[in-house]
Design a binder for these strands. Sequence first.
DNA 1: AAACCCCATGGAAACGTTTCCATGCGAGGG
DNA 2: CCCTCGCATGGAAACGTTTCCATGGGGTTT
Lengths: 351, 351
Amino acid sequence: MTDRRPSTVKDVAASAGVGIATVSRVFSGTGSVSPATRDRVLAAARALDYRPSALGRGLKLRRSGGIGLIVPDVTDPFCAELVAGVLACARTLGEHVIVDAAGGDPAREAEIVERLAEQRVDGVIAMPAGDEADWRGAARVCSSVVFAGRVLPGPPDVPDVPSVLADDAGGVRAVTEYLAGLGHRRIAFLGAVPGGPPRVRERAFRATLAQLGVPVEEDLVVAARPARDAAYAAAAGLLQRRGDVTAVLAAGHLLGEAAVLVARELDLRVPADVSIAMVDDVAWAELCDPPLTAVARPARDIGYRACELVLREPARRGRGGPVLLPTELVVRGSCGPPRAQRRRRRGNPAD
Amino acid sequence: MTDRRPSTVKDVAASAGVGIATVSRVFSGTGSVSPATRDRVLAAARALDYRPSALGRGLKLRRSGGIGLIVPDVTDPFCAELVAGVLACARTLGEHVIVDAAGGDPAREAEIVERLAEQRVDGVIAMPAGDEADWRGAARVCSSVVFAGRVLPGPPDVPDVPSVLADDAGGVRAVTEYLAGLGHRRIAFLGAVPGGPPRVRERAFRATLAQLGVPVEEDLVVAARPARDAAYAAAAGLLQRRGDVTAVLAAGHLLGEAAVLVARELDLRVPADVSIAMVDDVAWAELCDPPLTAVARPARDIGYRACELVLREPARRGRGGPVLLPTELVVRGSCGPPRAQRRRRRGNPAD
DNA sequence: AAACCCCATGGAAACGTTTCCATGCGAGGG
DNA sequence: CCCTCGCATGGAAACGTTTCCATGGGGTTT
C-alpha cells in the first residue's frame, strides 16, 4: 500500500526545480538562499512530506545528535528524576536521549557503552556502578562521559571523568546535626557500603558525630546492599540487636523504607520510640505516617546539569572537580527527642 | 590529543589485507567468510579498535535499529515501570530506545514523533495524551506505532493503532465488588476524566455497581485531572461535601495519594471511618499506614509486550483489538466494613 | 577428463546528507 | 566601460555501511 519510501532532498530538489545543495541549505540553515527559493523549497517539501534523515546527516556530520544515558534502574525514583532532568535539558538543546538501565551490573554497563559508541552519540551521562577501570576504557571509547548522581568507589586520585553530584556530605552532616541536636546519642547509620572503604555518606556521618563529640559505635554502623531484601534484613538486624538506638539515619530511600517497615513490625512508634530520617526525599516520605524527615537531593537538577556539561561545556569538563549541588533537609514528623533511657523489647545491654 | 577519527571498514580491510566487502560480511554476519579470513579481520578490527558505525549501517539499511518511547512523565511510577519493560525487551532484541517525556501535551507529543521519524526509528511506543487526529497523522509518519498503558479517548470506531493495555475494566470491577462485598453502599469514584465521555474505569465502576444493584450517586463520581493539586482539591471537595461516603475508589495513584492525605487532614481514620482503594499499586501503597488496597496493573509487562508487538509481530499488529493484560487486586489494610451510619467529624476523635 | 557448481572474495553502486568549489550574474567603483 | 566583489546556485565528492554482481578456484559429478 502506502509504503512509499520517505522522500529525500533529491525528490524535493526535483519538485522545486532547484539543486539538492539548495534544499540542504534551506533545511540545515547554513549558507544563503534567496527568500523566493526558500519558499519554493519549503512548499515542495511540505507537499512531499519531506523529513530530513538524521541518518544521512549523522553520517556526514559524524555525530548522531543524541546522547546516551545509563542508570542502574529507571524505576528508582531518584534515577527517574535524574532522567527527567536530562530529558528536559536535551530537549532544549535539540538532542534526543537513548536511555538504558544497567541494573548495577558493570558488564552490562560496558555493553551499553559499546552500543552507544556504535551509535556515535555526542556524549554519555552515567550513574555508574562498575569500577574505575571499566569506565576509564569507556571514556576512551566515547567522545565524552559525565557521571551524574554517583561516582566510582575508586581512589580519588585523578578524577578525569567530570561529574555532577549532590552534596551528600553536607546533607548527611545537616541531618546528623539535626538528630544530635534533638538529643540523640545512639544514632544508627543504616546503609554503609558492604565492601571497600567507607563512602562519602558514612564518612560524613562519622565526621559529624566526631565533631559533635558523640562517640561512634561501630555496632551502629550497619552495611547493606541497596536492594529491598538486603535493606530489610539489615534494618531488622539492627533494630532487634540494639533496642537502645534512639535514631536511625538511613542512607537511601530503600533503607528508609526498610527502617519504617521494620519499626512497624516491631511495634516501635515513630518518633516516640525511634526517630527515622533518610537520604533521598521520595514521594512516599510525605505519605508515611508520620511523614519522614529526609535529605532531598536535587535529582532533576543533577540530570539537567550533567546534560549541560556533556553538551555545552566540553571545555569546562573535568576542571575543578565534581560539580556539587546543594541538598536540603526536609524536616517532617519522623524525628523527635529521644525517649528517656529505657529498655524495650527484651533489650540486650550493649552499652 | 587522541582525537583520531574512529576507524572504518576501509581501515580494517586494508590492515587485514582483504576487501571491505569481506569486513562487512564478518561484522554483519551475512554471507560466508572462511574461518581464517574471519580471524584475520577480527584481529585487525580489535587492533584498530574498530566499531561499526550505526549511522552508516542505518543509512544503508534505512532503519536505525532503535525505537522511540513516549510517555507523559518518566517520574511517574507506572510510566517508569513501563519504560523498564520496554528497555528489557528492546535489550533482548538488540535495539536501543529513545525515550522522551511529553508531559501530557499533544503538541509536544507531535513534536517528539516528528523527531523520531527523522531518526528513522523502527517503531514507536506511546502512552498517548493527544487526540485521535494527532496520532492518526503520527501513524502515517512512522513505520509503526503501538499504544501502551492508555488509549485515546476518541470513538472506538476503527482501532487502527494496536495497543497493549491493562484490563482496567476487570480491575475496577474486582475492587468495586470487593468494596460492595464489605458492605459499602456509598462508594465514591475519585478521578473521572473531566471533559468528554466517561472512560473505561468509570464505566466499569458504574456497570459493576449497577450489576450489584447499588445505585450510583452522581454526586459521588468526581472528576479530576491527573495532577497533584487537582487530585487533592477533588478529594478534599468530595470528603468534605459528603461526610457519609464510606469508601473511596481512587482511579489512579495520584488520586489515591490525595485521598489518603485528605483523610488524614480531616482526621478520618482508615479504614474505620472511610475505606480507601486505588488503581495502581505503587511502592508507597505498602508503606502507608494502613497499607493501601490497590489494583495492580502489570506496567512492566505492558511495556515488554508493547515492545514485542512493535518489533516482532508487525503482522499481528492491530488485529483482534487491544492486547489486555490481567490486573490483580492486592488487598491490604485500607478497606474494611463501613462504619454504622453516622455523621463524620462529630467532635474530637478519641485517640 | 570435461562440465559444473558452490564458496570465498573484491569492486562498485547505492543510501541521504553536507559542503567545497565553480559558475553566473547584478551592482558598484575606478 | 571594465574590473571586481559578493551573492545565489548547482555539481560533485565525501561520510561508512551493505549488497549485488563478477571472478576465480577447487571439488564433485558425469
